[in-house]
Simulated assay, not measured.
Amino acid sequence: MQEKKQTSKTVLNDEAEIVVDDWQILFNGTSLDQWKEFKTDGISDAWRIEGDALVYMPPEDEEHKNHDLVTRQEFTNFVLTLDWKISEAGNSGVFWGISEDEKFGTGYQTGPEIQILDNHKHPDAMVGTNRQAGALYDMVSPSKDVTKPIGEWNTMTISVNHKEQKGSVILNGIETVSFPLANEEWNAMVATSKFAEWDGFGDYTTGKIGLQDHDNKVWFRNIKIKQL
C-alpha cells in the first residue's frame, strides 16, 4: 500500500498569527507584528529588518535607553527555535518569563536568559563558562562550545516545560544545557547566582519572550515557537 504523503499546513488563528504545523511564526523576515519594545506599544528604529533578518543596531545619538524587544503574547510551556549571529565582541540574549509590571525596568529583571556572546572577544566569556554563548546565564554552563565563527549563523532551540519541571538548550544540533524549572533545584541555582536578591527574577511561569538590547549589534531570523 502506498503511504499517504503528509503536507505542511499553514493557517491564520484568531489573532491573524501565522501557524505552520503547530509552529507559531514569531518572525518570518517581513513582519514585526508579534513584537514590541518592553513596556511600550511600538518598536524604535533600533530594530530593523535587513533581508530576511531582524537586526538590532545600537543607536548612536541618544542617552542609554533600553530597547529590549518582547512578544505581544505570553507563553508558559514551549519550544522556541531561532537563528542568531552576533557582532565581534558582542553580547545579547534570549529571555522567557518576562513580566511588564510597572516596577520592572527591563526584561532582564524577571526573565531568565540564554546567552548570546562572542566567546572569544567579549569579557563576559572570561568570567566563567556559565556566561558564554548558550549558557543559562550565570547558572548553567554549556557542556561544550559549539558556536560558529563570528559572522556565521547559529541555530538555537530553547525548551521550557514547567509541567515536567525541566528546560534545555540545543545549539547547532547539540544539546549543550539542561536545567530544572520551578522546583527546589531551580531555587538553589538562583540562590547562588547574581540574581539571588532580585525581586521577581524567574518568578513568572507565564511571561513574554524577549530579545536583548545589550548595546551590541545582533541578528535574528527564523523565529518560531510551539506551545507544549
Score class of each variant (00 low, 15 high):
residue 127 V to L: 15
residue 130 N to K: 14
residue 29 G to E: 07
residue 220 F to M: 08
residue 62 E to A: 13
residue 170 I to N: 10
residue 31 S to Y: 04
residue 90 G to E: 04
residue 171 L to C: 09
residue 3 E to K: 15
residue 68 D to I: 03
residue 228 L to R: 10
residue 191 A to M: 06
residue 146 V to R: 11
residue 27 F to M: 06
residue 193 S to V: 00
residue 27 F to R: 03
residue 207 G to T: 06
residue 187 N to L: 12
residue 111 G to C: 05
residue 170 I to M: 10
residue 163 K to D: 14
residue 36 K to G: 01
residue 191 A to V: 03
residue 17 E to K: 10
residue 110 T to R: 03
residue 201 F to H: 03
residue 23 W to Y: 13
residue 132 Q to L: 11
residue 96 W to I: 04
residue 190 V to L: 07
residue 169 V to C: 07
residue 36 K to S: 01
residue 71 T to K: 04
residue 85 K to M: 14
residue 2 Q to E: 15
residue 194 K to I: 12
residue 147 T to L: 06
residue 118 D to T: 07
residue 16 A to I: 07
residue 99 S to C: 08
residue 10 T to L: 14
residue 87 S to E: 14
residue 168 S to M: 08
residue 22 D to G: 01
residue 7 T to Y: 12
residue 149 P to S: 08
residue 36 K to I: 08
residue 75 F to S: 06
residue 195 F to H: 02
residue 122 H to Y: 12
residue 33 D to T: 13
residue 157 T to M: 13
residue 128 G to E: 07
residue 205 T to P: 02
residue 112 P to V: 09
residue 95 F to H: 06
residue 112 P to T: 07
residue 113 E to S: 07
residue 23 W to K: 06
residue 122 H to E: 12
residue 168 S to R: 05
residue 166 K to W: 03
residue 158 I to D: 00
residue 76 T to E: 15
residue 128 G to T: 11
residue 102 E to V: 13
residue 172 N to P: 02
residue 149 P to Q: 08
